[in-house]
Amino acid sequence: MKLRSRLTNLLGIALMLLLWQLAGQNLGDALLATPVEAARALVATLREPGFWAALWQMMWQMTIGYLLALGIGVPLGIAMGRVPVVDAIVKPWASMFIVVSAAAVVPLFIILMGRGLLFSTAIVFVVTVWYVVVSVTEAARAVSPKLIDVARSFAASDAQRFRHVILPALHPYVMIAARVGFVHALRAMVTAEMFISAGYGGLLNNAGLDLSTAPLFALIVMLMVISLSATTLLRWAADRAAPWYASRTRDR
């Protein structure tokens, strides 16, 4: 069954690549480079030292903003889900800021913070943190009151109920927030860099001006690869950390 769904996946990808190839051959590489050309450009790009420097710069700056967003977003989300006062204070801000895209705040942030590390981490943080907050809040609110009653009936203290019921119940959802938050963070980081023409976003900018679209596709494919590997890694970590959840969702 699993093998069959894998095969179907591969078939879908092959079909897509075929369509892309046909369309590319008709439109020419100034409009739509074919996958073959994109693959060639990718190999060339990977050989450039500038590419690796840009990738490294993007990744470490993004990681700072991302970790900050998790470090603040997760506790804040738990507090909002469990303490009505905190929710009442923060909720309006969370629901307003969550719709603001990176592109909308970048100009303001450039004026406020310049174009350095502070700027890019701040963009990543602001875009990611609300997503984390909102999803963790929902999860914290949904912790089964029955299970909390079970813990109470065994005379568990507030701290014990937090440690033995609320935290483990939240664990899988925090991991999901981390996974989707990563994608948000990466997107925000690329957008920010495109505005200031630095790092990986800068490369994307330059490639966009090129006469061939192949190098642009190569860079986009690399972004997809990064995002996919990171989320796969995070999923693997989540499954290791919460085997009960992994086993329950696998059986389904």
Partner: peptide, 15 residues
């Protein structure tokens, strides 16, 4: 006192 709940209500994250 030990309580047995209607739906068992086990902790899903514990064996």
């Amino acid at each position: 006192r030990g309580m047995v709940f209607q739906g068992a209500d086990l902790f899903p994250w514990r064996t």
